[in-house]
């Protein structure tokens, strides 16, 4: 007996929204080719979803260990500030000592290392100091934007660097670059967790932390790993956000995206109580959320409504995932 995957409801909701658009939104599935690059609403969704998709990939692993990482939005702001400082090299910036020229590779690497350090910091607080994840990552969520302002000297740093900007704005093989970045990160994380035993260990840790230690799983290292992965993902998301606007805004980059990521994970069928996780489900969840946003925007509905509609769809999917709710829907059996 093979049970249905946990993301089946998110997929159903996504198909429903897409079907709705097929009939109600003219030109929704239209795709144009311009300069060897694809344009259209669907492509736009896959492009726009990238930052949240990256955050939620890492968040999936953290949530599977019974944790949560609230700092990812602030980490985006920090890595964005680092990248913008290295590119624009404004007067008096504390990173002036580092000169990477216009090597996109080194600048991106610096952004990813920023994310990695933040992830290690979170991981150490959770695994060594044994601070509850929600509190431990709240520290960086609050302090991170301050650090980002320190790096950018309280300014919104703007720059003009076409090579770096192409991270968000360029295209490869017809598809926007952010799409490929998500594909790459998803593939690496999938291979890391499912082709090795890390996935089983993460699920064991989330399912029963005491038992996980008793069977010899190195729970400390595992926690450090999942928070580091999330940090690197957030670092990359920060690169995309900075490249998109060709600048770094410490106050607004990635604001509230940690909440979108948590929503994407739970809509995708990974329980906040830890244990079983599904990266595929998370990606479906993230795409569902972005499809909703795009649908509402292209239909010219007031943007205020976006959040309410999103919340309603999330509620519907979560209710369908709840055995208790499904049980209530079932017709009552008459006692013999």
């Amino acid at each position: 007996m093979k049970s249905m995957p946990s993301w089946i409801y998110a997929l159903g909701a996504l198909i429903f929204v897409l079907l709705f658009n097929a009939f109600a939104t003219p030109g929704f599935f239209e795709i144009n080719v311009l300069d060897g690059r694809l344009f259209g609403s669907v492509i736009d969704i896959l492009n726009r979803v990238a930052p949240v998709a990256l955050l939620s990939l890492g968040m999936t692993l953290v949530i599977a260990t019974r944790g949560v990482d609230l700092s990812v939005g602030a980490v985006m702001a920090m890595s964005g500030a680092v990248a913008a400082s290295l590119i624009a090299r404004p007067e008096g910036n504390i990173l002036l000592g580092l000169n990477f020229g216009d090597s996109v590779f080194l600048i991106v690497l610096a952004g990813l290392v920023t994310g990695l350090l933040c992830g290690l910091f979170n991981g150490l607080l959770v695994s060594r100091a044994r601070i509850q994840p929600i509190v431990a990552t709240l520290l960086l969520m609050v302090a991170g934007r301050g650090v980002a302002q320190l790096i950018s000297d309280g300014q919104i740093i703007t720059f003009s660097a076409p090579a770096f900007a192409s991270i968000a704005r360029g295209a490869t093989l017809g598809m926007p670059n952010p799409f490929w970045i998500v594909v790459l990160f998803a593939a690496v994380i999938l291979v890391l967790t499912r082709w090795t035993a890390l996935g089983l260990f993460i699920e064991s840790l989330g399912s029963n932390p005491i038992a996980a230690r008793n069977v010899g799983i190195n729970t400390g290292a595992l926690l450090l790993f999942v928070y580091s992965v999330t940090g690197v993902c957030a670092g990359m998301a920060g690169m995309i956000a900075a490249a998109d606007i060709q600048g770094a805004d410490a106050n607004n980059a990635g604001l509230y995206l940690e909440l979108d990521a948590i929503l994407a994970v739970s809509v995708g069928g990974t329980l906040l109580s830890g244990g079983r996780f599904s990266l595929v489900g998370t990606l479906i969840g993230a795409i569902l959320m972005q499809t909703l946003t795009t649908t509402i925007l292209t239909r010219g509905v007031a943007p205020e409504l976006t959040l309410v509609v999103k919340a309603l769809v999330v509620l519907a999917v979560c209710l369908l995932q709840s055995p208790t709710f499904l049980h209530m829907l079932r017709p009552k059996k008459v006692a013999a």
Binding site: W195, T196, A197, L198, L200, F201, E203, S204, S207, N208, I210, A211, A212, N214, V215, G216, I217, G275, R276
Partner: peptide
Amino acid sequence: KAEGIFPGLSIRENMVVVAQVKRRWWQRI
């Protein structure tokens, strides 16, 4: 219940987890 089983995981995964720990994480069974 509190310190042994991994609820939510399959019987099979519950039974191989120690073997997997011994084999090291990069060599998945």
